[in-house]
């Protein structure tokens, strides 16, 4: 078969993509700019102003979660890359393994840890922490209120998406060319300077793809905030879900928010392609 004939093998999938990738996105755009009766409108976007609180909360929590993941993930990847090959193999397996347990179950498990009479509160009351606090401050607390706080939601995001930060950073650091580090040291750089001027800039593509892979699911989650936020910490994902399957049925508004979310992803991708050359392998693990 000739080369251009062989390319016909892709035709069925191209048709499939047109039907189930491109057409759905066109639907979202059409819905976002139309009313229930079919006319053109920008109302769906202006109406989003009512939800500024949810927008800012989503961005704030997702940014905090991403920062925490980076602060934990970068040192961990760096330390991991200095271990022996067998340790590294087992270590990476251990980091990926939790991803095979459904994230709803892992999140649910945190619910039972953070609950009013969950493990943490049980532990604190067993060691008499609450008695101590009550005695010192004259308060009357029996447990720490953790479920339903923004901290719990951030914890859930960090817990679920930390591997997405570690894997790309690790795969970049582990492939660093050692001769570059030796050259830097031979030329008189101390270890701080080597890190700042060589290792860190070279691991930037991994960082960028890690940041994207944590930020995008964090800003769009609805299950984590539902489970750990106790219904009081609505995020963008919850808002979209409500417009489609929840009580506030309004697919037009939901589409408009989904469109905004797509723009966020495009911006992330643009930043990544612009500043991080060769990040593809990192994304592929």
């Amino acid at each position: 078969m000739k080369k251009n004939k062989r390319s016909l093998l892709a035709v069925p999938y191209v048709v499939w993509m047109a039907l189930f990738v491109v057409a759905p996105i066109i639907m979202v755009v059409v819905y976002a700019f139309s009313t229930a009766s079919g006319g053109f409108t920008l109302d769906n976007f202006t109406r989003m102003g009512t939800y500024t609180v949810i927008f800012t909360r989503s961005f704030k929590l997702a940014l905090i979660a991403t920062a925490v993941c980076l602060l934990i993930g970068y040192p961990l990847s760096y330390i991991m890359a200095r271990e022996g090959p067998r340790f590294q193999r087992v270590g990476m397996m251990l980091i990926m393994l939790p991803m095979w347990v459904n994230f709803l179950l892992r999140t649910y498990s945190w619910m039972s840890i953070l609950e009013k009479n969950g493990l943490i509160n049980q532990f604190f009351s067993a060691i008499g922490l609450f008695d101590l606090i009550n005695a010192v401050f004259g308060t009357n607390i029996e447990y720490f209120h953790m479920i339903g706080t923004q901290g719990a939601v951030v914890l859930g995001m960090v817990y679920n998406y930390l591997p997405f930060m570690i894997l790309p950073i690790y795969s970049v650091i582990v492939k660093l060319d050692n001769s570059l580090l030796e050259a830097a040291r031979d030329l008189g750089a101390n270890s701080t300077a080597v890190f700042r001027k060589v290792i860190f800039p070279l691991s930037l593509p991994g960082i960028l793809s890690g940041v994207t892979m944590v930020f995008v699911p964090s800003v769009s989650t609805f299950a984590i905030s539902r489970l750990l936020g106790g219904g009081t910490q609505m995020l963008l994902g919850d808002l979209i879900e409500q417009q489609f399957l929840g009580g506030a049925y309004n697919p037009h508004l939901g589409s408009a928010i989904a469109l905004v979310m797509m723009l966020i992803v495009i911006v992330c991708m643009w930043v990544m392609n612009h500043f991080g050359e060769g990040e593809e392998q990192a994304v592929m693990l």
Partner: peptide
């Protein structure tokens, strides 16, 4: 074509889900 192919991987899951839902319902 490869760019279109990577859309479902890059997009937030909820956007992929919602857009397919809209298409099917319509």
């Amino acid at each position: 074509l490869m760019t279109v192919n990577s859309i479902p991987m890059m997009n937030a899951d909820i956007v992929t889900g919602v857009s397919l839902c809209l298409l099917f319902v319509a």
